[in-house]
Design a protein around this nucleic acid. Structure first.
Length: 611
DNA sequence: GACGAGTTGGCACG
DNA sequence: CGTGCCAACTCGTC
């Protein structure tokens, strides 16, 4: 095929931006002069579909979002749609360039480590072919790579730091105008140069467990009907999703405008004061739409600003950063700018921002630094704890309800994420955040490669946060916002007959009460897998040692594999691994107190003098 | 070097 | 229901 002699032929590559609103990249593509053909394209990569363990709820949200986007494109031009080409981008993009005489390819910039490598490869291929690349930032409030540059090539590690760096970069841009028309696509036939080779994926099918039928999605580059239609979940051989969350830019904009139509809610939004126990989400639930780019961040930012301007001042005090809506978006940006500076952000080893802690079940590496896969089994106790956590059968109703909600809905409240993440890492189980992160990656619809590892490091006190002695109680924490245990009653129905007194700790109920509730602990619902308070104290003692050792993921001792032994020695010296029962510890504490009280003179005087 | 702040802790005490 | 302590982190500011 020959290239068009005159007129631009533009390929717009959708990836992180399933919308037509507030899109700097799409507008840049449409601003190219003398466009003779315009191709909106999605590359449906079998390597991704087979190689990444992703739950049904996220697959379905993505497909719905693609379908909705395609409809939006068709509304702008009846001849247009989202062209879903079934193949890896580095294979099918050059085919499109050649077959369709493409002169320009445009995409929204993605600063994620994996995406950066992929996009550099595409840029090199484009250069070889003579296709001009336009990479336009639009996914965040500020371009993370620019923030990193302005921060002396260092990751942003606190919100204040991010705020002070971006404070010198001008304000947040206004939302982009929505296009009112699209040029026609040209001929869409593809020369099938890849032949039979194109569908082969040599690795392991990581989604085999959710495949209920055969996968016909990749049989033809242009789909089964040859029309580049968005794949159906059945075509991928997958079953039906369980979530009630619907994908798409239309649904996302509905959520946003509903929220913005209550200016008092916008003005007084305070994340820490929203309830993780609420049956109906107590937050905006915009995150899945932000993740897939169904809604633009500038629309949210300026939408909130406008709403607050209209606010009559009633319904409470206006909240400030970081707990207000702007703070939430800023945190997302902070994580993105941290991730953009650290290629090993999703693991411990090599990760300069991540403190080294000798968690159980962390990634294992061979002498050459290659991750050993499949991962060797760890200690039976660790494996069993991880499995129980994942499957929502820890014997702690609050944790189990959250994990079951996560699997079922693909979403749990931010503070519920805190609670379950703290439990599996630094709170009680002392299991690597890498394992927890994987489960979130599989089940959360809104899983984001910067925010999620970032938050896992936060909660595990590996980075961003360090007050490891602040541990979420498994009973006391949910009781703060809901004494009645509504979420437990919904997701752990076997416990629903227990009174409020025992709903978060049914194992404390006398046998007669268990019988009356028709739920025997240890039979109908598991006995707790561990002693909450004893394990908490062991964790704190080990965290203390890890902090004293002061190693990070990029330390030589971590890279050469000697760090775990160094820490184990420290634990042995300090008795950090001793298992003490809660009863013993209570007695010990009481004794200390008696001693302190008996020591009548010095301490008392000092304390009084200080006051 | 001290001090206060940091998106969101638990617990005893009054 | 508010206050202060628990045992103590990092970071920026003074």
């Amino acid at each position: 095929m020959t290239k068009a002699k005159a007129g631009a032929r533009v390929l717009y590559w959708f990836r992180t931006d399933l919308r037509i609103t507030d899109s700097p990249a799409l507008n840049a593509a449409l601003a190219i002069d003398h466009t003779a053909a315009f191709y909106p394209v999605w590359c449906w990569d079998p390597n991704y579909v087979y190689g990444h363990r992703v739950g049904l709820n996220r697959w379905s949200f993505l497909l719905e979002s693609m379908t909705d986007l395609s409809d939006q494109l068709t509304k702008l031009n009846k001849k247009q749609k989202l062209h879903v080409v079934r193949g890896a981008p580095e294979k099918v993009l050059p085919m499109m360039w050649n077959s369709w005489g493409i002169t320009h390819i445009v995409w929204e910039k993605d600063s994620n480590a994996y995406a950066k490598i992929r996009d550099e490869r595409i840029k090199a291929l484009a250069k070889d072919t003579g296709v001009e690349v336009l990479e336009v930032h639009g996914r965040h409030l500020f371009d993370p790579t620019e923030v990193v540059k302005a921060n002396h090539n260092k990751p942003t590690m606190t919100l204040h730091q991010w705020q002070s760096v971006t404070g010198k970069m001008g304000g947040v841009d206004q939302p982009q105008p929505t296009p009112i028309s699209l040029p026609d696509p040209g001929d869409v036939k593809l020369s099938d140069e890849l032949g039979e080779e194109r569908h082969k994926y040599e690795g392991v099918d990581r989604n085999a467990h959710i495949r209920t039928g055969s996968d016909t999605c990749f049989d033809k580059l242009s789909g089964s009907k040859g029309d580049y239609a968005v794949p159906t979940i059945a075509e991928m051989g997958f079953g039906q999703p369980t979530t009630s969350i619907r994908g798409g830019t239309t649904a996302g904009h509905e959520k946003l405008s509903n929220f913005l139509s209550h200016p008092d809610d916008v003005a007084t939004f305070s994340k820490p004061r929203t309830a993780p126990t609420s049956l109906e989400p107590s937050t905006t639930l915009l995150s899945p739409y932000i993740k897939f780019g169904c809604v633009g961040v500038r629309e949210i930012w300026w939408g909130c600003k406008e709403a607050i301007k209209k606010w009559d001042g009633k319904g409470g005090q206006e909240t400030k950063e970081p707990e207000n809506m702007f703070g939430q978006l800023e945190f997302r940006d902070m994580y993105a700018a941290a991730e953009a500076a650290e290629p090993d952000f999703e693991r411990i080893r090599g990760n300069s921002v991540c403190r080294y802690i000798d968690w159980g079940l962390q990634n294992q590496y061979d002498k050459d630094g290659q991750e050993i896969l499949p991962r060797p089994r760890g200690g039976d106790e660790d494996e069993e704890r991880l499995a129980a956590w994942r499957e929502g059968r820890t014997g702690f109703p609050w944790i189990d309800a959250c994990m079951r909600q996560l699997k079922n809905e693909g979403w749990i409240h931010h503070l519920a994420r805190h609670s379950v993440a703290c439990f599996i890492t630094r709170g009680q189980c002392y299991i690597s955040w890498e394992r927890g992160m994987e489960v979130f990656d599989e089940w959360l619809i809104d899983w984001d490669p910067a925010s999620n590892p970032g938050n896992w490091m936060w909660l595990s006190c590996s980075a961003f946060f360090s007050q490891y002695y602040r541990v979420y109680g498994l009973v006391s924490w949910p009781q703060k916002t809901d004494k009645s245990g509504a979420l437990v009653r919904k997701y752990c129905p076997e416990l629903k007959n227990f009174s409020d007194k025992y709903i978060y700790a049914p194992h404390l109920a006398p046998e007669s009460v268990q019988k009356e509730a028709k739920c025997i602990i240890g039979k109908d619902y598991p006995f707790p897998i561990l002693d909450e308070h004893a394990e908490k104290d062991r964790c704190i003692a080990r965290l203390k040692n890890a902090f004293a050792l002061g190693l990070h993921g990029d330390a030589p001792e971590v890279l050469d594999g000697t760090a775990p032994d160094l820490l184990r020695k420290k634990h042995e010296e300090t008795g950090a691994l001793d298992v003490k029962t809660a009863k013993e510890m209570k007695e010990e504490k009481a004794m200390k107190k008696r001693e302190a009280a008996g020591d009548s003179t010095l301490d008392g005087y000092v304390k009084k003098a200080k006051r």
